[in-house]
């Protein structure tokens, strides 16, 4: 078991003929992901990474039975790509694209919710269930199958922690990057709920960063609903207020959203918070031991 993606995933790649789309489609196929097709308007009849290309998501769904879509289209076209996937009935849409204006994402989020679909991202690395399906841009080889569910707002920082876990012999049930933007489809709380319900996940790692209050919401949720051990790491202890640290959502504003607040909220909820990514495996082993 795992969450959201597994061997039954039938993946569609939107923007598959682009530079990013074709590169990562190939990488995902090489990992063993079942990529059933791609979409590029006007690209019908082409083949990329062995997958047939369609003009529309609706056509692709009809022909291939795709049940997950991943989006690699530029920021100004990405909201439309999300609407297209959701309206074609795809239940899980993963948007990798960075730089989508916030005011575009607000109605997108509302539409996804109203449709009963789930969006992951945008501005995220995607998700992977090791040994079954890689739906994203992460390096597959650093992952291993195992009992740890991981959720993060970051990309390369997630790889850092995954790599440390794998080296310590701690494999992952699913590793999920929820994205660094202010408006994202799936929150920490959503992911925690899924991991709590997943029998293959025995412990959870949550990797947060400065900005917003998703980590505080996660802490409240953990205190009330999560029975599995949780280990955390928060990036940005040294970040100054009022400055956007790369990610659009990583900014301390009005004195809130600091790492210190998030760390104390998580600790109050019983989460063991690491000072360095390399402490995560040790804290997990201690938590799993009892």
């Amino acid at each position: 078991m795992s969450i959201l993606v597994d061997a039954s995933t039938r993946l569609l790649v939107q923007g598959i003929t682009g530079r990013e789309g074709s590169f990562h489609a190939t990488q995902m196929v090489e990992y063993g992901t079942n990529v059933v097709g791609g979409v590029t308007p006007g690209g019908r009849g082409k083949t990329v990474a062995g997958a047939p290309v369609f003009d529309t998501v609706a056509d692709a769904v009809k022909e291939t039975g795709a049940n997950v879509s991943i989006i690699y289209v530029p920021a100004r076209f990405a909201p439309d790509a999300i609407y297209e996937a959701v309206d074609a009935g795809i239940p899980l849409v993963v948007c990798i694209t960075e730089g989508i204006p916030v005011n575009d994402m607000v109605p997108v989020y509302a539409h996804v919710k109203a449709s009963g679909a789930r969006l992951i991202g945008p501005n995220c690395p995607g998700l992977i269930t090791p040994g079954q399906a890689k739906v994203g841009i992460m390096p597959g080889f650093i992952h291993a199958e195992g009992p740890v569910g991981l959720v993060s707002r970051s990309g390369t920082l997630t790889y850092e922690v995954v790599d440390a876990l794998t080296r310590a012999g701690l494999g992952q049930s699913t590793a999920l990057g929820i994205g660094g933007d202010p408006v994202i489809g799936t929150s920490f709380v959503d992911a925690l709920g899924l991991f709590e319900a997943d029998p293959a996940t025995e412990a959870i790692v949550i990797i947060g960063e400065i900005g917003g209050s998703d980590e505080e919401d996660a802490a409240r949720y953990i205190a009330e609903h999560v029975t599995k051990p949780v280990v955390g790491f928060i990036a940005g202890r040294t970040a100054p207020p009022g400055k956007r640290m790369g990610h659009a959502g990583a900014i301390i504003s009005g004195g809130s959203g600091t790492a210190a607040e998030k760390i104390s909220a998580l600790e109050a909820a019983g989460v063991r918070v690491a000072e360095s990514p390399y402490q995560v495996p040790g804290l997990l082993q201690a938590a799993l031991a009892g």
Binding site: S152, R153, S154, G155, T156, L157, T158, E160, G180, I207, E209, I210, F233, A235, G236, R237, T238, A239, M245, G246, H247, A250, E275, S276, P277
Partner: peptide, 17 residues
Amino acid sequence: IVNGAGLAMATMDAVKL
């Protein structure tokens, strides 16, 4: 000099640590 925003923040924190 780091690749990725989250890792860049974590790197600053590691320097401080």
